[in-house]
């Protein structure tokens, strides 16, 4: 079965969705990502959807779920790179993605995450587990 790789970079988890999501893939990503947040104690999750051409109500809900689930595990989520046509469609569909932070691109998203997580980044070193899995792909 297909899986979307989740990469760890310090206190952050990076996910770049390079295929069009179908329902089962989205659900797997949701479960994997939440487990990864728990396992690595990540403080921030960055999801790049620049290659995703369709976000319907189901995928939108999954994105919202990931953000809320990460939030209660003490991690912030930023979604970056949404295509303009996807943004138009989401709003017309009636799915404003409330509670999900967004940024235009990877770099801006990373900066946003850093600001949100704030000063806690100074303590990251102690938390880093030397034998973590980089990815669960």
């Amino acid at each position: 079965m297909d899986k979307i790789p989740i990469l760890r970079l310090g206190a952050y988890l990076l996910v770049s969705i390079q295929v069009d999501l179908y329902d089962r893939l989205a659900l797997t990503l949701e479960a994997d990502l939440v487990q990864m947040v728990n396992k690595t104690g990540a403080k921030g999750v960055l999801i790049d959807i620049s290659a995703v051409s369709i976000v319907d109500s189901f995928m939108g809900r999954i994105i919202g779920n990931i953000a809320s689930m990460s939030k209660i595990l003490d991690a912030e989520t930023v979604v970056v790179g949404m295509q303009p046509a996807v943004a138009i469609t989401l709003i017309e569909l009636g799915l404003p993605l409330k509670g999900v932070h967004t940024a235009l691109d990877m770099e801006k998203g990373m900066n946003l995450l850093k600001t949100m997580i704030g000063d806690s980044s100074g303590e990251e070193d102690q938390e880093t587990d030397p034998d973590y899995d980089d990815t669960i792909a």
């Binding site: 369709i54 303009p84 046509a85 138009i88």
Partner: peptide
């Protein structure tokens, strides 16, 4: 156009689900 394509595909995705 791209925006209408996206609207159409999103609609199709909802209905087929």
């Amino acid at each position: 156009g791209l925006v209408n394509q996206t609207r159409l595909l999103t609609a199709a995705s909802e209905l087929v689900r």
